[in-house]
Deep mutational scan, measured.
Amino acid sequence: MIVFVRFNSSHGFPVEVDSDTSIFQLKEVVAKRQGVPADQLRVIFAGKELRNDWTVQNCDLDQQSIVHIVQRPWRKGQEMNATGGDDPRNAAGGCEREPQSLTRVDLSSSVLPGDSVGLAVILHTDSRKDSPPAGSPAGRSIYNSFYVYCKGPCQRVQPGKLRVQCSTCRQATLTLTQGPSCWDDVLIPNRMSGECQSPHCPGTSAEFFFKCGAHPTSDKETSVALHLIATNSRNITCITCTDVRSPVLVFQCNSRHVICLDCFHLYCVTRLNDRQFVHDPQLGYSLPCVAGCPNSLIKELHHFRILGEEQYNRYQQYGAEECVLQMGGVLCPRPGCGAGLLPEPDQRKVTCEGGNGLGCGFAFCRECKEAYHEGECSAVFEASGTTTQAYRVDERAAEQARWEAASKETIKKTTKPCPRCHVPVEKNGGCMHMKCPQPQCRLEWCWNCGCEWNRVCMGDHWFDV
């Protein structure tokens, strides 16, 4: 396979590697080409510095992935760790964990309700045991953590790749202090920090972006993250068709209702045909949960890209028209025109101005929308079919299609509260000796007794199943 190397943020060049090629071997190839010592090179990928003893497969490097290699003399205490030698983080029983690669970060837990604080980093599902597709590297999971809308060759929703760059020099040479644990960490600028490894760059702020994971991409090709779309790892039924499908869209209502993408497309087109989208002054033209839940309008309007190009163009047109109407304007009634106009409040005669090729020149009556006339309008008909009709959803289907309910059931079956801080902690095999993952707590306690870890627990039921 081919990976592209950008040395000291210059133009990239291809390097041929195998899945079992080590990072140090990659350094040696680059060092020979650039005429520099291999031990002064640092390989940066997806916000993480890659260790010498890791392989291309370990690092989730795919065909035509772009890695950054910078030349920086080692500072005291760094060289041993980078070589894969006596790194205290690798000691058996050590409590410190390697910062998780962005290629394996899962933010789907952050669609849980606000009262489930902490689960994004504490609760991990076991539903990723799908067998890898044919042709994928051994052991590589097909679980997708992110979804994007690819405006490039795909023109559809695709699995996405999370990447990070330095907000100062805009190069992907920043190593994160810690990985993101929720969508806010990724979507809110300057929320996460790190250290830029580019020479002479003092940058410390992280800037995240997404790429389409279905095809090789260049540095400049980015895609918009659709953070309401998630892999259906909890096997929730769709609120409309009641099938279990994946991926799904999880509405931001209190129940976190789930809808499959085909039904979401149908829901949007139906509402669009009836012009029953909601115009929100802050958000724009949007839709609420299909069950009509309060405070559930979709905030990231790129989710409506699921409509496809033709329907999305209609959505944008109707949204612009609705904006004009909300501002007190009118639409030209001549067939084939429909231009938005903003006449004076007491102006009865409205002319669709033909300047700049935008208007048709038609003069019409503001009251009856017919060709302009003197005197009273002959008839004014009330528009028919403008009443909002509820999208029919079966109550039982709505009850079963809740992301929140599956989460709470998982928590109930696989977790116990920490005796000190009461945060839910998952036990997935292993011994009875637990350690609270909350940095402010870190209590060592017994899963069996529910009390602080002691010699009695150690001698009596340390390794009970």
Rank of each mutant, 00 (worst) to 15 (best):
Q282D: 12
E16G: 06
I188W: 07
K435H: 15
E426Y: 08
Q311E: 06
H200F: 10
I122Q: 15
S65M: 04
I298E: 00
L61D: 01
N448Y: 05
A92M: 13
L228F: 05
E382N: 14
Q252P: 15
L261I: 10
Q64L: 09
H68K: 01
D20N: 10
R442C: 09
S205H: 10
N235L: 06
L342T: 09
T270W: 04
N273P: 00
N144I: 04
G139E: 13
P153E: 12
I44P: 00
G361P: 02
L443R: 05
D130W: 08
Q171D: 10
E426N: 11
T55Y: 04
E404I: 13
D53T: 06
R156N: 14
T175E: 13
W54Y: 06
N295M: 08
G12A: 15
P335S: 13
C59M: 05
N90S: 13
G459C: 15
F4Q: 12
G430K: 15
F210Y: 04
E353Y: 07
S110E: 13
V269G: 03
S10L: 03
S296Q: 00
D274T: 04
Y372P: 11
R442W: 05
L107G: 14
C352W: 02
R75S: 13
L107E: 15
T222A: 09
G114W: 06
S286I: 00
G135D: 13
G284I: 01
C293L: 01
K412F: 10
T237E: 14
N295S: 10
E376T: 11
L26E: 00
D115Q: 13
S145F: 03
R104M: 09
P333T: 03
S136G: 14
L41R: 00
G12D: 05
C446V: 01
G77M: 13
V117Y: 12
G84S: 11
P419L: 05
I229C: 07
R245L: 05
V29S: 08
G47M: 11
F13D: 03
F45D: 01
D274F: 04
L272M: 12
S193Y: 11
C418N: 01
L342A: 08
C446R: 00
T21I: 04
R72I: 14
W183L: 02
D464M: 13
C260Y: 01
V67C: 04
Q155M: 12
S255Y: 09
M434P: 01
L341V: 12
S407E: 12
R234A: 09
F362W: 07
